[in-house]
Amino acid sequence: MSKAIQSANVSIKDVNLFYSDFQALKDINMEIPANQVTAFIGPSGCGKSTLLRCLNRMNDLIEGCKVEGTIKVGDVDIYREVEVNELRRSIGMVFQKPNPFPMSVYDNIAYGARIYGIRKRSELDEIVERTLKQSAMWEELKDRLRKSALGLSGGQQQRLCIARALAVDPKILLMDEPTSALDPISTGKIEELCAELKQTVTIVIVTHNMQQATRISDKTGFFLLGDLVEYGDTEQIFEAPRMPETERYITGRFG
């Protein structure tokens, strides 16, 4: 039976993850509050993306990947009590490299809606307009809705991907280094967008950029070699880290 996902707080309990024999996550415990921005930071290869991809079960697509422990969104166990496509509908994802489909801007945004059976032109039009406005792109794009999305700039493509994810009304939006391939101006736009979006969705973002974490996140988790070393309010993490590793990392001594 597939339960519906109602609320947007995530609780991760005793999660261990293995890629075949390699353990990529070790005993992760963490509560991600609703309607806030939570940042995952840590050196390369420490498992940030891996944990993020657990939250919408993208790891299911990887051969040999095994997840132990429980992850609940609201009171729904996402590995046991919900159908995977249903889950992904409620939890959107934005990737490091912008990946718009090779279709028009309009069709990109309508893609998700069409999955859930919305066929009527007027409804789709409405969704496209609403999400483009929500992601602050309507003015830029309203005259080129029929043009291929691949013709947009990298920053526009990434915001389009955010819009595409928003079009299905997700409760949570997962972002894996969404700005690492973008210029500072596009990055700024996306950060602003996050600040606005958190009114309506919960955001979990992976970033390598400490400033970005301090600018946009409310909570920060620091990972090292598959461990969640420290997790707390962003201010506290950056101003008064409890763990020496955290301090070393944020002052740039490794990673």
Partner: peptide
């Protein structure tokens, strides 16, 4: 492309 589509619940 595939990831993008799966991530939308397709």
């Amino acid at each position: 492309y595939r990831e993008g589509s799966y991530a939308l619940g397709a």
